[in-house]
């Protein structure tokens, strides 16, 4: 039985890739519905019209393509580590988005946001360490 539950550098890179894809998917889906923010969905046929408009956006299709790729990456990750480790570690996209807007868009990061970033980082490190078998070496 393949019982290698430790998070290796390779798995961390895969988690990083899935995070980047996840961010990209969020961006695409938001873009695809942004044009119809005022649309009121009251009935089922409204919902159908809404979905039809969303699916006519190229962003929607780019997002769906990324979903297929993320499925392959994510399945590979899950074959190697616990779900309760993979999910929390995958949360570092919440750190990337503010940091990239700091570096590339020169946005200011508030004190509350910094404290949030550090909490996420501390949480990820805790979960990461909890996945490590004491007997086996680090990484």
């Amino acid at each position: 039985m393949p019982n290698k539950k430790n998070v290796t550098v390779k798995i961390l890179l895969l988690l990083l890739l899935s995070d980047i894809l996840e961010t990209f998917i969020h961006f695409c889906f938001k873009k695809s519905v942004l044009t119809q923010a005022d649309f009121m969905v009251r009935t089922l046929s409204d919902a159908f019209t809404f979905s039809k408009a969303a699916f006519s956006s190229p962003f929607m299709w780019a997002g769906l393509m990324a979903v297929a790729v993320i499925f392959i990456v994510w399945s590979t990750i899950l074959s190697k580590i616990d779900l309760s480790v993979a999910i929390p570690i995958a949360s570092f996209s919440y750190i990337f988005v503010p940091l990239t807007s700091l570096i590339f868009l020169h946005e200011k990061i508030s004190a509350l946001r910094w404290s949030g970033i550090f909490m996420i980082l501390a949480g990820v490190i805790l979960v990461f360490l909890s996945s490590h078998n004491k007997k086996s070496g680090f990484l």
Partner: peptide, 22 residues
């Protein structure tokens, strides 16, 4: 689960809320 995994998960949730709210 070890306690550190629970603690880490809860810290992440609090962190996400702090990042999102600001």
């Amino acid at each position: 689960f070890e306690i550190s995994r629970w603690l880490g998960t809860i810290l992440i949730v609090l962190g996400i809320i702090a990042v999102s709210m600001s």
